[in-house]
Design a protein around this nucleic acid. Sequence first.
DNA 1: TGATAATCGAGACGGTACGTCACGTCTTTCG
DNA 2: CGAAAGACGTGACGTACCGTCTCGATTATCA
Lengths: 175, 175, 175, 175
Amino acid sequence: MRAEGAILESAARALAESESASMDEIAAAAGVGRATLYRRFATRDDLLRTIAEYAVAEMATRLREAKLDDVSLEEALARIARAAMTVGERYAILVREQVRGDPATVDKQLRAPVRRVFRRAQREGSLRDDADVEVLLDLFGGLVGAASRARTEHGIGLEDAASLAATTFLRGARG
Amino acid sequence: MRAEGAILESAARALAESESASMDEIAAAAGVGRATLYRRFATRDDLLRTIAEYAVAEMATRLREAKLDDVSLEEALARIARAAMTVGERYAILVREQVRGDPATVDKQLRAPVRRVFRRAQREGSLRDDADVEVLLDLFGGLVGAASRARTEHGIGLEDAASLAATTFLRGARG
Amino acid sequence: MRAEGAILESAARALAESESASMDEIAAAAGVGRATLYRRFATRDDLLRTIAEYAVAEMATRLREAKLDDVSLEEALARIARAAMTVGERYAILVREQVRGDPATVDKQLRAPVRRVFRRAQREGSLRDDADVEVLLDLFGGLVGAASRARTEHGIGLEDAASLAATTFLRGARG
Amino acid sequence: MRAEGAILESAARALAESESASMDEIAAAAGVGRATLYRRFATRDDLLRTIAEYAVAEMATRLREAKLDDVSLEEALARIARAAMTVGERYAILVREQVRGDPATVDKQLRAPVRRVFRRAQREGSLRDDADVEVLLDLFGGLVGAASRARTEHGIGLEDAASLAATTFLRGARG
DNA sequence: TGATAATCGAGACGGTACGTCACGTCTTTCG
DNA sequence: CGAAAGACGTGACGTACCGTCTCGATTATCA
């Protein structure tokens, strides 16, 4: 009997290899019958969403472990970027198929901690406060994503890519 | 007889409305038989790719008309951002289905003009020259995309969103 | 679940009604999805061939039950003719679309028993033995087919038609 | 410009080679545009029927030339059989696709002359007159067809096959 | 330990979209 | 003016995947 987690991991790997793996192939890759796969995840979309939730959870854990509130804005941004790149690249399929986890969860688990960092920085004057925090979050997200893609395309190290995103945002949106 | 262009436009619109329109529906929406659709575009993917090329061509035209070489870096960035947002939002389907035009074409038609702006700015010292121009292109692209998404989600005006992306990048990556 | 036999029967009936029924219509008539129909019979031709095999099997059964070896040549011929007409008219589609069962099966199941009758008659001197048995089989087949067609066209009774074929052959090819 | 006759001949040949030639292929084989083919023969069926009429006409000519009324029943039957086999084998496609010429024409051109032979024989007492002439015509037709098939399958000469059909019918249905 | 219940795989099924093919209709172009 | 070329709408074909379902077999649980 494969636990749900094991199936998910298998599925994530199978989907990473061939982004359009059929449910049949995913099941086979997980060493599980197709019926079982459907028992756990009623729909292909369900499966992807669940993988997304796993990714979100993992990212949330990393953010928690990053102690964002205890470090400078600059360091916090770098940590966030590193975490996002690491997790994002492991779940490339989600990015490619535009799967988003539950917005509420994403907001609470991922955006909230970063938002807190941003708010603090705005209070301290190190981040411009004439722009909506939500928009700033989006901008930073865009930078991190772009840096991540640039990383895989131009062979940049994770540290450098993360630092690039963080620095650019820091200068670009400073108070 | 429907010209290929007319079919493409119809298809783009149909796909914009319901991102998963079947070839049947697309054909019907174009007032054309399914076979004809397949005669023009051997594959659903083909169709999407061709739409992508149209989008690329349109974007290229806008960039050409923007006279990027005749204006300041700041203004050039703003024009690029506005053009990208306008075109990108019209062809949302491409973004959503992760369709990319031919990389070579994209490079020649879209990246090249922006690259020239960036190069000039680097020579003039207004853009950091310690970072690969390609990476800077990616970063700016990420910012524009993020601003565009923020725009639709938070109801920001196109001017403001474009300006935000341009300004942030300008400050973030200045020389 | 529809057994293959039930589907075949349905299909044979549907095809009998409208000789050019589409696979869609056949499936619908059988109360089965089109995919299922294709799962059983990879091809329209496959379906027809399988129906042919059913017809062959049914004819073989009738021949077996006719105890051809226990009756006079005349009676045997009449029984064969009656059986052939009955079965042939039930599977008119096969005749009309020129579908033949597997030649080996047909030879073994249908021609063989008749051939035995013919051989015996030749030994007994009641059937000319200066002609190839195979050719005689063909001739008799032609007569039966013609009588069957004449029957439906001129409203002759099955008994009379069968007797006509049998008698004509008997006299025509007697030893 | 190809005359209708030339196209027909081409078509008959093309269909003889590959019994399921498409209209496209037939047109190409005739060195004619597909549109022209359709102008002459509104339908594939139309084409086949017209070929059938040609075959009927040819057969009619042969029957006329056979001077059936001037020879003995036996010789007449043999001549009919030879003519039918010759023409039938040249237009095998018609047989295979079950195409029939216009029944009225067939009756007038083909059945009538044979019917006259049969009627005369019945009057003379050499053919049983207790059976409908039409049915006898069918029976003889069946025999000829069967002999023709046996001929191609068992490599019998045309003369022998024709004689076999004629003799069998003669004895089988004599007065 | 042995019966019973839950869970699994295997795989058939209805449905739907895909891409292919031929038919018969038509328009355009050229001689 | 008539023929060649070829696009078009229609509709069947056969394929592939989805999500549903049933069926034994295997396992786990409990008497």
